[in-house]
């Protein structure tokens, strides 16, 4: 029995080592840095400054503005992406719809194409008035052009639309997979019982997808909260800090302005937020319980 236990331990050992090395150690190190004054002017020789960095953040650091931005970014992206993905999955799940596999194959293309290249493409598309979005598409639809340099609203529209394009196929695929795994008989029985399409949706579809939605929501919530590439590439957090999230700001503090300790403090604050929120959601939905 002991041999068996030891044996099991070997299976789990790699992931533990990797986690310790690549997550736990760096996070503790970052936490440590956040209590020092490590930065350009204290590069090799830095000292402890206590909560100084945190005080700076709360006193000068645009904390509330960044929190608001992060929430706009995360919630705005998630709601639209998940909604779009869910709607498309439902549409594709209609058995009497012809050409489903063709549409499916076309609609997953944005996900299949390398994300960071797509971002660079979108950056070009959004240039006002020379990018194709502002030159061709929006005028064709009689919509006003979008210029992230001249308006904060425009900047958010640009960011969230781009993020939707990048991510809706993922949600579509996941929800479609889940819909496909619902036994068809359930619907047939409900139909015999005289339940209309809406009732069937509420009674069968939604409950069956509860787990998937919860799981996808948590992973995507954390991912979007921590995702800095779209903002960094498209608006750079601008105008000013109007579209700057915690992570983008932390990244710029560290890699553009060399304020390593301040960046670490921002990262710590951001992490606390996302982890507490995620844990509350995990707890509420009891999503991990259903998997173990």
């Amino acid at each position: 029995m002991d041999k068996e236990k030891l044996y099991s331990f070997f299976y789990i050992l790699p992931i533990i080592l990797v986690t310790l090395l690549l997550f736990i150690f760096p996070v503790i190190y970052s936490l440590y840095i956040s209590f020092t004054n490590m930065g350009l002017l204290h590069f090799f020789h830095y000292s402890y400054v206590g909560l100084r960095n945190y005080i700076i953040i709360f006193k000068y650091g645009y904390f509330l503005q960044l929190l608001e931005n992060t929430i706009i970014w995360t919630v705005g992206s998630l709601v639209t992406m998940m909604g779009l993905g869910f709607a498309l999955a439902l549409i594709l799940n209609q058995s009497d719809l012809k050409g489903r596999s063709i549409f499916y194959a076309i609609l997953i293309l944005p996900w299949a194409f390398p994300g960071f290249i797509s971002l660079l493409i979108w950056q070009g598309l959004w240039v006002d008035p020379y990018g194709m979005m502002n030159k061709l598409i929006l005028p064709m639809l009689h919509l006003p052009t979008i210029n992230s340099l001249t308006s904060t609203t425009d900047a958010w529209v640009e960011l969230i639309l781009t993020n939707d394009w990048l991510s809706f196929p993922y949600f579509m695929v996941v929800f479609y997979s889940a819909l496909q795994s619902i036994p068809r008989e359930l619907y047939d029985i409900a139909e015999l019982d005289g339940a209309n399409i809406f009732a069937r949706f509420m009674r069968i579809t939604l409950p069956s997808l509860k787990k998937t939605i919860a799981f996808v929501f948590i992973t995507s919530f954390v991912f979007t909260w921590n995702n800095f590439y779209p903002i960094y590439v498209l608006t750079g957090g601008g105008p000013g800090i109007s579209t700057e999230t915690f992570i983008v700001y932390a990244y710029q503090e560290a890699f553009s302005y060399s304020n390593f300790s301040l960046a670490a403090a921002w990262s710590v604050i951001s992490s606390i937020f996302v982890i507490v929120l995620a844990i509350i959601v995990i707890k509420y939905t009891r999503i991990l319980d259903t998997y173990f």
Binding site: Y32, V49, G50, L51
Partner: peptide, 9 residues
């Protein structure tokens, strides 16, 4: 840690 260093600093 923060409190400790706050004291120290």
């Amino acid at each position: 840690v923060g409190g400790y260093y706050a004291y120290i600093s």
